[in-house]
C-alpha cells in the first residue's frame, strides 16, 4: 500500500476526530460583552414620551411599541397599537424571531424604565437592532402626555409650545374635547416569523 494513502487517511481521521474534541461552541450568536457595555452606557437608546406621542399621532409606520409588562397589566392599560411581550418571554428560544421586525423601530416600555431597560439589554444581546426604551415609562407618559402640567408664566416659548403639543396629545389619547374618531384599539398580532425556510432539495 502506498505510504501517501496512509498519511492522507490519517489526516482524514484526525480531522473527523477533531470535531469531537472541539470545545462546545456557543450556538447563539450573542453580542460581545464589551460592545454591549458600550451600548448600555449610551443614552441614545432612550426616547422621550413626547417623541413617542408624536410618532403615534402621526401613525409612524416604522414604530412598534412593545409592552414588556405582564399580560394582565397590558389588558388594563396599554399604548395605542402596542404589542405585549412580557419580560420573561424574552428568554424563550423564539423571542428573537418573534421580535424581528424588518427595519422597524421597536420601543420597549413598562411602568417605569427598569423592566424595559432589562428587556433592552436582553434584546440587544439577542442581536436585535433598532431597539429603544421609553424614558420614564408609563409613569412619565401619564405625567407628561395624559396630564401635562402647565409651565410657569415665566417659562420660555419653547416650553409653552411643548405644553400646547402635550395638551393636544392628551386630547388625542384620552379622546377629550376635540373628538378624534378613535376606533377600538387595533391590535398588531405578533406574527411569529417562521425560521427562514430551509431550501428545498430534490433529485
Amino acid at each position: 500500500m502506498n505510504k501517501n494513502y496512509i498519511i492522507l487517511m490519517g489526516i482524514l481521521i484526525l480531522l473527523a476526530a477533531g470535531l469531537l474534541v472541539l470545545p462546545l461552541k456557543n450556538n447563539s450568536k450573542q453580542l460581545d460583552p464589551e460592545v454591549l457595555m458600550w451600548d448600555i452606557v449610551q443614552p441614545t437608546r432612550y426616547v422621550s414620551t413626547d417623541e413617542v406621542a408624536k410618532m403615534i399621532i402621526e401613525h409612524d409606520p416604522l414604530l412598534v411599541m412593545v409592552d414588556v409588562r405582564s399580560a394582565e397589566d397590558f389588558q388594563l392599560f396599554s399604548l395605542t397599537n402596542a404589542i405585549n411581550f412580557p419580560l420573561d418571554s424574552l428568554a424563550l428560544d423564539d423571542a428573537k424571531s418573534a421580535l424581528t421586525f424588518n427595519k422597524r423601530n421597536m420601543v420597549f416600555y413598562s411602568n417605569d424604565d427598569l423592566k424595559s431597560d432589562q428587556a433592552w439589554v436582553i434584546a440587544k444581546r439577542l442581536g436585535l437592532k433598532n431597539i429603544y426604551v421609553l424614558k420614564g415609562g408609563l409613569n412619565r407618559w401619564i405625567q407628561t402626555i395624559i396630564q401635562p402640567e402647565a409651565p410657569a408664566e415665566t417659562a420660555s416659548e419653547a416650553e409653552f409650545n411643548l405644553y400646547a403639543f402635550r395638551q393636544g396629545a392628551s386630547q388625542y389619547f384620552t379622546g377629550g374635547s376635540i373628538s378624534i374618531d378613535q376606533s377600538p384599539q387595533a391590535e398588531i398580532v405578533v406574527s411569529r416569523k417562521k425560521k427562514a425556510k430551509a431550501a428545498e432539495g430534490g433529485c
Binding site: I13, L15, A16
Partner: peptide
Amino acid sequence: SNNLVTLIFVVIAVIAFY
C-alpha cells in the same frame, strides 16, 4: 451527536478503502 457520526463514517470509509 452528528460529529460522532462523521467520525464513525470516516473510520468505516477508511476500512472499506483498504
